[in-house]
Simulated assay, not measured.
Amino acid sequence: MVMAVIAVLVVVVVYNLLIKANNTELQQDSEAISLQVEKYFLPFERMVKQLALDEDVQTILTTTKAGQRTRYIQRY
């Protein structure tokens, strides 16, 4: 009887350890992927920041409305 109880406890402890290890691994994987995505978009973020400083781009953004095409604006 004692051996059966010990066996059940061992199974429960090992199961819990496996669940925790799996969750930790998933968390580390998702953090690694998050960093990779951030590295991927970094050059595009720089380009957008540089474009935001351009006066022509600022003018287009302030003179056009949502859904309006720039070819129908007289200035462009």
Rank of each mutant, 00 (worst) to 15 (best):
M1F: 06
V2P: 00
M3Q: 14
M3G: 07
A4P: 00
V5S: 08
A7Q: 14
A7Y: 04
A7M: 09
V8S: 11
V8I: 12
V8D: 10
L9V: 06
L9I: 07
L9F: 07
V10S: 08
V10E: 05
V11M: 11
V11K: 10
V11C: 09
V13Y: 07
V14G: 02
Y15P: 00
N16V: 10
N16Y: 12
I19M: 04
I19W: 02
I19K: 05
K20W: 11
A21N: 10
A21L: 12
N22Y: 14
N22G: 05
N22H: 14
T24C: 06
L26Y: 11
Q27K: 14
Q28F: 10
Q28A: 15
D29R: 13
D29K: 15
S30V: 07
E31V: 10
I33D: 00
I33C: 00
S34R: 14
L35A: 12
L35D: 03
Q36K: 12
V37S: 01
V37P: 00
E38C: 01
Y40P: 00
Y40W: 13
F41L: 11
F41C: 02
P43F: 02
P43Y: 04
F44H: 06
F44K: 03
F44G: 03
R46A: 09
R46I: 11
M47D: 12
K49F: 03
K49A: 11
K49I: 03
Q50D: 13
L51D: 03
L51W: 10
A52K: 13
A52Y: 07
L53F: 04
L53E: 11
D56Q: 11
D56K: 12
T59V: 03
T59A: 02
I60K: 02
I60G: 00
I60N: 00
L61E: 04
L61S: 09
L61D: 06
T63Q: 14
T63F: 09
T63G: 03
T64Q: 02
K65Y: 13
A66Y: 14
A66C: 10
G67M: 06
Q68P: 00
Q68V: 07
Q68H: 05
Q68K: 05
R69C: 05
R69V: 05
T70K: 05
T70V: 15
T70A: 08
R71D: 09
R71V: 12
R71A: 07
R71L: 09
Y72G: 01
I73V: 15
I73E: 05
Q74T: 13
Q74S: 15
Q74W: 03
R75F: 10
R75C: 07
Y76S: 07
